[in-house]
Amino acid sequence: MSGGLLVQYVIVGLAVLASVWIVLRKLARKTTNRWLAAASIHFNQPNRGALARAFGRRLQPTEATGDCSDGCSTCGACGPKPPAAARPGEPMPLEFRSRQ
């Protein structure tokens, strides 16, 4: 395999890995947040170097700030946020009551 072709395969490999990550972030936000939090704790230990700790802090998952009301993919908040109306005395969950 020539050097040029090898470089092409490396770039393609990185692009595919990045794509897997993007799709996982979209489809499994909670799970990937857990992974990020675990990695963040791993790197952000007192006995680590400054660079590793800074990297750990960067990995810390942030809470979604939007609320999806402008459309899908505007906030990435699908899932983790509790329903606003799920409080005692309110009609949650919504249930379909069929004829007996």
Partner: peptide
């Protein structure tokens, strides 16, 4: 799409729905 199903879960608090 999955986002729509996720929002149905979030708004109704029910996997059944």
């Amino acid at each position: 799409c999955m986002s729509t199903l996720a929002i149905i879960k979030r708004e109704t608090d029910s996997w059944r729905n």
